[in-house]
């Protein structure tokens, strides 16, 4: 495989509340020999709150970054964050559909964006460009013995016309990656349900109800952890888990981990390297279970070898 190389847009969450997503993404990319070149002088993607007030302005904010990528001579912008991804994709979609809109957007920019750049999520790169064969080659500590359910949220595959990735109503990209790194992936019917993030500030009880339902279904399906690819999903399910327990009368303690953190674990990176200890819900028990699974596997392998001898 010739070395993959992309323009990388971390976005604001990955600089702060989701620092661990950025760290784990870069580490995993490094191991998979995917070069991520941070876009010089990148700025806000326009995801929030610009797009709720002014579509033109939101597209212009996004297009500024896309124009820089054009200038870098790159044709793909990669971002781990689905909010950023959606902002870029929507800007590209609306500008390519309507020439008048494109002109208006470009009139706001110092350098015009000429639609020569495509936006992709890091998940899409992992799933489509790297591929499960190459991922499996790097797995040295398969996540045997743990059940992980993937939670995709709303933006990764939808709206289908804009997202153009995986199946909008039944995505399987994260399922496939989780299976590739050795985890058991139980059936999870809530992988696309709304977590309520949009009401995070105004109507907290809606969020705790919706996110609570997701956690409840995950636990009922036997999950030891939930895999996510979105800082907002992670925040709602992890940071609010105490709030959910209080509001809805639950007693959940289920770790919510980024897909890149889980991949990192299977590649042999330590939990602290992947900043897993940063999460609100602690993963100690989950990590112990992985170690236990690995030991059991080694033991049974040894036994089978000695019995052969």
């Amino acid at each position: 495989m010739s070395k993959l190389s992309f323009a990388y847009y971390p976005g604001c969450s990955l600089e702060s509340s989701a620092k661990e997503y950025d760290v784990s993404t870069r580490k995993v990319a490094d191991i998979l020999e995917v070069e991520l070149i941070e876009i010089p002088d990148w700025s806000c993607c326009g995801a929030s709150p610009a797009h709720t007030v002014d579509h033109l302005f939101a597209s212009a904010v996004a297009a500024r970054n896309l124009a820089i990528v054009e200038e870098m001579g790159r044709d793909i912008l990669v971002t781990p964050c689905p909010e950023c991804l959606s902002a870029f994709k929507k800007a590209i979609y609306n500008m390519s559909k309507d020439d008048g809109f494109k002109k208006k957007v470009n009139s706001l920019l110092d350098k015009p964006f000429n639609l020569n750049v495509e936006a992709k999520s890091f998940l899409q790169i992992l799933y489509e460009d790297v591929g499960k064969e190459n991922i499996s080659k790097k797995v040295i500590k398969p996540l045997i013995g743990v059940n992980i359910v993937p939670y995709y949220g709303c933006l990764l595959t939808r709206p289908p016309d804009v997202a153009q990735f995986d199946d909008p109503e039944n995505p399987i990209s994260m399922d496939t990656i989780l299976e590739t790194i050795g985890a058991n992936v139980p059936y999870f019917s809530y992988k696309l349900e709304c977590c309520g993030a949009a009401y995070g500030v105004t109507k907290r009880r809606i969020v705790t109800k919706l996110s609570g339902d997701i956690l409840k279904t995950a636990i009922e399906s036997g999950a030891d952890a939930v895999a996510v690819a979105c800082p907002l999903c992670q925040q709602n399910l992890d940071l609010r888990q105490d709030q959910i327990n209080r509001d809805q009368g639950f007693d959940f303690h289920i770790p919510i981990l980024y897909i890149t953190q889980l991949m990192g674990l299977s590649f042999g990176l330590s939990a602290s390297e992947l900043m897993i200890d940063k999460h609100n819900v602690k993963s100690d028990h989950f990590l112990e279970k992985i170690e236990k699974g690995l030991k059991e596997k080694e033991k049974s392998e040894k036994e089978s070898i000695s019995s052969k001898n």
């Binding site: 109503e169 059936y187 019917s189 809530y190 279904t217 009922e220």
Partner: peptide, 11 residues
């Protein structure tokens, strides 16, 4: 909008 499994029921 959606049909999914919950226990032995179809939701």
């Amino acid at each position: 909008s959606r049909i999914f499994k919950r226990g032995d029921k179809m939701v």
